[in-house]
Computed example of a mutant assay.
Amino acid sequence: MTPTPRGRIPVSPRRFTGTVQIDGVGNPDEQTAIGCAHVRFSPGARTAWHHHPKGQTLYVTDGIGLVATRTGGVQEIRPGDVVYIEPGEEHWHGATPDRFMAHVAMQEADENGEVVIWLDHVTDDEYRA
C-alpha cells in the first residue's frame, strides 16, 4: 500500500453556484472504481443538478446543508448524516443560505469510467423551496 497525495480540484462555474472547494481523496483507477472528495460549500453555494450512474453517498462532516431530488423535495442535512442517492436520481446538494457545509462525496464509476452526469443549474426558486 502506497499513499497517494491528492490536491485541490478546480471548480467549474458550469457545475456549481457560489464558492466551493473540492479536495480530491481518490479517483477511480485500475485498483478501484470508487471516487471520493471532501467538498466545502460557502453559505448559499450548491451543485448544479446532476446524477450518478452508480449512485452517490454523502457523509456530512461540518455545518448545515441541503440535499434535494427532483421528486423528493429539499431536506436539511447535518454533521454525521449519511445520505444515499440512488443511481440515476437527479439531485443537488449544498450549504444553507446562512451556513457553511462540508461533506465527503463517494461515488462509483460505471463500466465507461463515468461517475457523474452534470445537468442544469439549480434556480434560486428551486434552492429556496
Rank of each mutant, 00 (worst) to 15 (best):
L119Q: 10
P28E: 01
R6L: 00
D110G: 03
H38L: 15
Y127A: 08
T2L: 15
T123V: 11
M106H: 06
M106D: 06
D124Y: 04
A33N: 05
R15Y: 09
I9W: 04
V39I: 15
R8I: 14
P3D: 06
Q31L: 12
W92R: 07
W92N: 07
A105V: 02
S42F: 00
E126A: 01
A37R: 05
L58I: 06
W92G: 08
H121Y: 05
A109W: 02
Y84F: 15
P13F: 12
G55D: 10
H91Y: 07
G44I: 01
E76L: 07
R15E: 09
G18N: 12
M106L: 15
V60E: 11
H50G: 11
V39D: 13
H93N: 02
T2C: 09
Y59T: 12
G113D: 08
R99T: 15
T17M: 12
C36W: 02
I117K: 04
V60A: 14
G24E: 14
T123C: 10
W92P: 06
P3H: 01
V39F: 11
R14C: 03
I64W: 02
Q31E: 13
A33L: 08
R14D: 15
G35D: 11
F41I: 12
E114G: 01
T4V: 03
H51Q: 10
M1W: 05
G80W: 00
R46N: 01
S12I: 05
G24L: 08
Q107K: 14
G94M: 06
R78N: 10
R46C: 02
I64V: 07
D81Y: 04
G88S: 11
V115N: 06
R8P: 06
H103R: 13
I85S: 08
N27A: 11
A45K: 01
M101F: 10
A33D: 09
Q56K: 09
V60F: 10
I117F: 05
H52W: 05
C36M: 14
H91L: 13
R70G: 03
V74A: 07
F16M: 09
V122L: 06
R15M: 10
V67H: 15
M101K: 09
P13C: 09
M101P: 06
T32R: 02
P28I: 00
H93L: 01
G18I: 12
F41T: 14
G7T: 06
S42E: 05
I85W: 03
H51P: 04
R46Y: 01
H103M: 11
D110Q: 02
D120E: 15
V122S: 09
T47C: 04
V39M: 15
D23V: 04
E108S: 14
T47K: 02
D29H: 13
G44S: 00
